[in-house]
Design a protein around this nucleic acid. Structure first.
Lengths: 195, 195
DNA sequence: GTCTATACCCGGATAGAC
DNA sequence: GTCTATCCGGGTATAGAC
């Protein structure tokens, strides 16, 4: 009875928000934006559906916030890897990082496909993200070419588009079968490009 | 008035079924299984929702039939390519074939991700399909190794898992931007494996 | 910050007529 | 083979109290 709804159930604002985003990451990643209801998420958080919507204006807002949170979380690791390692080593490191974060990977695999539809709430998010990530990787490839780590017959844009595609595709096979070793396949492909 | 609902609206059984599957391919590929209603599909076909469900027991049945139809359509091209060409040439040919069939590609990209969830109607369909396709490609790689077309330091399973991942991932980038040239990126990667 | 209650719309599937 | 009518469950979002 002491757990009856009351003012005492309140949590510090930031903490509750973070908790919601973690639950949403897992649930949107499982069933997609359309496959989960706000009530489902609220139930797992332990509040009511209107209680949930108090923190995010709408379901769409919650999805975008969930996607942006993951990018913010991983950006530190990625920037460091691309600054301190060659393109190939940084990408292999990112792959291992991903294998330690299945919920985030699942969210991205599911939402990037669901958002192919022009009207989807995350459509523009992924469009611009692909452009940006391809440019980041291509830039690091150019630097490796100048440093003599990669041959000049590589077209940076093609290499970049290809690794991103490769990693995206491997993630799907890994999510379907967690014993599948993404990093060994990625390594076998990337080693073919070394000078 | 002559178009009022009547017995004259009937179509030969096979023809109507085929028409439904073509519409379903396009619509499931756009918005996913959960993003389209039977009423949406029925409206585009020009019949009512119960009229649609007369041809397929349930929405799940319709999805599976739609996925199987695409495999049946492309299997002729694929078998021929793998019989008459090297692994690399057959895969490049398949990529060009895919670029001529965007609706089918979209259906597969969207549904393979949506079906990652264990309870999804197409979950088992894609699980077993990935195993089967990987084995087909790996087998062709082994034959190319014996024929002296590919070096023996390639691990057939890794090569196979990687190309499939690469092609899957490229399709997403291509669907987001139709001017993106999948086949040139694929070619740049596969050429690195030639003996 | 969280609740209950509710307005309002949409989905899949079935019954039964033609 | 196709329709209309209907059942029933579930979805998002808002109103207003505490």
């Amino acid at each position: 009875m002491s757990d009856a709804p009351s003012v005492r159930n309140r949590r510090p604002p930031g903490e509750r928000r973070e908790q919601i985003l973690a639950v949403a990451t897992e649930m949107f990643g499982n069933a997609g934006f359309r496959g989960v209801s706000l009530a489902d998420i609220a139930a797992r958080v332990g509040i009511s559906q209107p209680g949930l919507i108090h923190h995010f204006r709408s379901k769409e807002d919650l999805l975008i916030a969930t996607l942006e949170r993951r990018d913010a979380e991983s950006s530190g690791h990625i920037e460091e890897a691309f600054r301190d390692s060659s393109a190939i080593d940084a990408l292999l490191s990112l792959c291992r990082y991903n294998m330690a974060n299945p919920d985030s990977v699942r969210l991205y695999s599911v939402e990037s496909a669901e958002s192919l539809e022009p009207g989807h709430p995350a459509h523009e998010f992924f469009r611009s993200r692909y452009s940006r990530v391809r440019e980041t990787v291509a830039g690091r490839v150019r630097r490796d070419q100048e440093l003599g780590l990669l041959p000049f017959d590589i077209v940076p844009f093609e290499f970049a588009a290809g690794v991103i595609a490769l990693m995206d595709g491997l993630q799907v096979q890994w999510l379907l079968d967690p014993s599948f070793d993404m990093s060994s396949v990625l390594s076998a492909y990337l080693e073919r490009f070394r000078k």
